[in-house]
């Protein structure tokens, strides 16, 4: 797996001079952190890459790291699959809470349409260029993005539960 990471990392470095921020092997999963401005170009490059064809997007999701340094509080994770060689990779982009915008990849992967809507629904990450960025799972008038860490998981309207009995 090290050589897979190296191959893709070198190809990305030679094609995009400053897009690749970090490359690492997490367990058996090659992971690349790229600049958010170039995510669409990187995905398009990997789509028609000569060594691997990452033509299938397995998943796309958001992560909130409230303790991360400023400008890197939110992360969007893309997982790609090369069906021919059965190779999977993961790409990450980080964005700040203040300018919480990431380019949409719906022009490349149709599946990203709903996945980006879900990520927006739960984390409030705005995908620029998305054709219909509206809530998809939560109720339409949900006033906040529930998977952000500053909100408690429990329903905030309840008064009848004694916190001490629930380990809180």
């Amino acid at each position: 797996m090290e050589n897979v990471t190296k191959d893709i990392g070198n190809a990305l470095l030679s094609k995009f001079t400053d897009a690749l921020i970090q490359q690492e092997l997490i367990l058996d999963f090659p992971t690349f952190t790229v600049k958010k401005e170039s995510i669409l170009a990187v995905l398009a490059f990997l789509y028609d890459f000569e060594l691997y064809q990452f033509k299938f997007m397995t998943s796309l999701c958001g992560v909130h790291y409230p303790d991360n340094p400023i400008e890197k509080e939110f992360c969007v994770v893309y997982q790609l699959h090369d069906m021919v060689k059965n190779q999977r990779i993961r790409l990450k982009v980080f964005t700040s809470e203040k300018h919480i915008e990431v380019p949409s990849v719906t022009s490349l992967f149709s599946t990203a349409n709903w996945l980006e809507r879900e990520t927006y629904d739960f984390f409030g990450i705005k995908f620029t260029g998305h054709p219909n960025l509206t809530k998809i799972l939560n109720m339409e008038d949900q006033p906040y993005f529930p998977l952000r860490k500053q909100y408690q998981l429990e329903d905030e309207t309840r008064e009848d539960k004694d916190d001490s009995k629930f380990g809180r």
């Binding site: 939560n138 949900q142 529930p146 429990e154 329903d155 905030e156 309840r158 539960k161």
Partner: peptide
């Protein structure tokens, strides 16, 4: 009462 689903998405 919402049961075990004391969470943001479930009616209590």
């Amino acid at each position: 009462s919402g049961g075990i689903f004391d969470t943001y998405s479930v009616l209590q």
